[in-house]
Simulated assay, not measured.
Amino acid sequence: MSVGCLCIHGYTGSPEEVQPLVDFLKNRTDWELANPTLPGHGEDLDLEGHYYQEWIATAELALLGLVERNDTVVLVGFSMGGMIAAYLAAKYDIERLVLLSAAGKYISISQMLKDIGEMVMDAWKGALGSNELFKRYKKKMKDTYLFSTIQFMKCVQFTRPYLGQVHCPVLIVQGELDGMVPRKAAEFLNEEIPAEDKELLFLKQSKHLICHGDDRDELCQKVLEFLG
């Protein structure tokens, strides 16, 4: 039986956000893996003029290709990609769904302040240029337009009602140190999704970029066990 696996990255991100998981699955399965770049996204952001409907349509077309070529299809979505994946799981006959740091609700002010505090400490030590979190935030603030931020909000608003129509088995994974989408978001997803087969996993050492966190080995193994 052939298996197709679609992985969807997050807002202002690129396939690289989920690439460690994609590589892990590629090395251990014979699945067809798709990890598309949403319009306007990628290493060089060009979000101006791109609508959320384009992001959803790109993921949906990739999914339809996998459905056509495989007996079974599974979905993995990170951050905003998690909300798009949930929407697709509600709309199509999907075998299993994995939601990573899915941006359904809430923003963690406290963790963001901790992250900023770490940046300030690095700045005091003269090491801010080597702070990876600072470099990522700086790039995103520079490249993100107000228009596209509104599109992100519209994407979440559009996809959120479909959580109640997801009935396939679901694995929800959340980093406890996530400064963008904190613990309450995963609990919200767990409450909203009516699927009987649900599992909620918190990773103690992971921030928002969960596939690149200190728990990534545990994460990858868990996803493989769940999808396999």
Rank of each mutant, 00 (worst) to 15 (best):
F202Q: 05
K138T: 03
S2W: 01
E176A: 09
A86F: 10
K125E: 15
Y87N: 09
K222F: 00
M180Y: 02
L75N: 07
Q157H: 08
F24V: 09
Q19G: 00
G175A: 05
L75T: 13
Y106E: 15
G117W: 04
K91E: 13
E191N: 11
K26H: 05
C220S: 13
R69Y: 07
E132T: 15
G49V: 10
D44G: 00
C155N: 10
V120A: 07
I172Q: 01
P161K: 07
G129N: 09
F188S: 06
L200F: 01
K135Q: 15
Y162S: 14
M112W: 08
M180P: 00
F152V: 07
M121R: 08
Q53R: 06
E191D: 14
H212M: 12
F134C: 10
M121Y: 05
A57E: 15
D178T: 01
K139S: 06
D122I: 04
T29K: 00
K138M: 05
T149V: 02
F158R: 02
V22I: 15
A86N: 06
K114D: 14
L219I: 03
T72C: 05
L171R: 02
L21C: 09
G104R: 02
D93Y: 06
L61S: 10
E17S: 11
Q157N: 11
M121Q: 10
E118N: 14
M180G: 07
H212F: 12
F152M: 15
L6H: 10
K207F: 05
M112V: 08
I56G: 04
D122W: 00
Y51D: 14
E176F: 01
Q111K: 10
V22K: 09
M180N: 12
S130V: 10
A62L: 02
R136S: 10
L100N: 02
A59R: 03
S14T: 14
A62Y: 10
E48N: 07
V98R: 05
F188R: 06
R183S: 07
M141I: 08
G117N: 06
L227G: 04
E199Q: 08
L61K: 11
R183C: 03
D93H: 12
P169T: 12
P15W: 07
L171Q: 03
A123E: 06
L63E: 08
L25K: 00
E196L: 13
G49K: 04
W55R: 01
R69H: 12
Q221R: 08
Q165S: 07
N190I: 03
F134N: 06
Y11M: 02
G65P: 00
M112T: 13
G65R: 11
Y145I: 12
S14E: 12
K222C: 04
T37Y: 02
D30N: 14
F188W: 12
R216N: 09
N27S: 12
K207A: 15
K139Q: 03
Q111E: 13
N35W: 00
A89D: 12
E132A: 15
E118L: 13
H50N: 13
I150G: 00
G117S: 11
P194T: 11
G13D: 13
Q53M: 04
L61D: 14
A127N: 10
E176Q: 09
I56Q: 04
E17G: 02
R216M: 13
L64T: 14
L66W: 11
D71M: 03
W31V: 15
G40M: 07
K207P: 02
R28K: 12
E199R: 08
E199P: 01
L146F: 14
F147K: 09
W124D: 12
L171M: 08
V170P: 01
I172L: 01
